[in-house]
């Protein structure tokens, strides 16, 4: 790993698809992941913190992990334990190779961005609570972040409610702060992540692998299987891995510059990322939003990265 590479901080709520996202990030030979900040989301913080460490341990890495916010900024806590299991890893047991850092995620994020102005790429694949706290408490944080890529939101539709994607819905107030902060930002939303489907055949093959990482990747994804009864799913949606993959290779998705704000009122559209596609608000675009996906190219990158673990 070279210091000259992009300096990356991953903010996540690990979570099964977060775990797979971390696995491909950790496998990349040139990536300089400075730290991982955990947030509550899919499951409570008490699970997302150790889960980040478990995945790094599995990958044979020791990236520092920092504990972030245990609760959303202002709304009641909303989680996805039905999807990710009570422990967040669908019941897959993995060893903890090291301990969490003493420094908080907030202090780490703001300190690192302050010391590396313009150089940090933040990839946020959970609710945006930690990022919003950094913006609110540190006046110069937004201008000093190099770039932010998030998994969250949708130009159209939702998955937590009819109008809201889970990561945004889990902390709408935080999302609104982040979208309006002026940080150069790319949104990888449901418009593309719902197309990022990994077939059942790959997962079946991985479950039988001799390699512990590949086999675990298969088991983690297979734990989603109980959700698919009777809904006609064609495979596993890779929301968070696509977000990491996009940062590795921006040609995987096409994007459109849009003005996007977040509904925070307690209405049917609470947590909706409202995208001004027709430019009716007159506001300038604040987000580069993913609108289409080179699916084959993405799946090749993802499968090669996971299977790369068996070739070391």
């Amino acid at each position: 790993m070279s210091d000259s590479g992009k300096k990356i901080i991953i903010d996540c709520d690990t979570g099964i698809d977060d775990a797979l996202a971390l696995l491909i990030a950790l496998q990349h030979p040139e990536w300089n992941i400075l730290g991982i900040t955990a947030v509550s989301g899919n499951v409570p913080l008490e699970h997302t913190v150790p889960n980040c460490i478990r995945i790094c341990t599995l990958a044979g890495k020791k990236i520092p992990v920092y504990a972030g916010s245990a609760k959303p900024l202002y709304c009641e806590q909303r989680m996805a334990e039905r999807v990710h299991g009570k422990d967040g890893l669908g019941g897959v047991k993995l060893p903890l190779g090291y301990t969490v850092e003493e420094e908080s995620a907030l202090s780490y994020l703001t300190g690192t961005v302050r010391e590396n102005p313009g150089e940090i790429e933040i990839i946020a694949i959970g609710p945006l609570t930690n990022i919003a706290l950094a913006i609110l408490t540190n006046p110069h944080f937004s201008e000093n972040v190099g770039h932010l890529t998030i998994m969250g939101g949708a130009i159209h539709g939702g998955n937590a409610t009819a109008s809201a994607e889970f990561n945004i819905w889990a902390d709408p107030e935080a999302a609104k702060i982040v979208f309006n902060a002026g940080i150069p930002m790319t949104m990888i939303g449901l418009d593309v992540t719902n197309q990022a489907i990994l077939g059942f055949d790959v997962v079946d093959r991985w479950k039988g692998s001799d390699n512990a990482v590949v086999r675990t990747a298969g088991e983690l994804l297979f734990s989603f299987h109980h959700l698919f009864d009777g809904i006609g799913a064609k495979g596993y949606a890779l929301h968070d891995p696509l977000t990491i993959a996009y940062v590795m290779d921006p040609t995987l998705v096409t994007t459109q510059d849009l003005y996007i704000d977040v509904e925070t009122k307690n209405t049917l559209a609470n947590g909706k990322t409202v995208a001004d596609e027709l430019h009716v608000t007159g506001n300038n675009p604040n987000v580069s939003a993913a609108v289409d996906l080179a699916i084959d190219k993405f799946l090749k990158l993802f499968v090669d990265a996971i299977e790369g673990y068996s070739k070391v």
Binding site: L73, S104, L106, L136
Partner: peptide, 12 residues
Amino acid sequence: LTNIALLFIAYP
């Protein structure tokens, strides 16, 4: 009370 509220959110 902005600072105090954020203190309680970040470090309950």
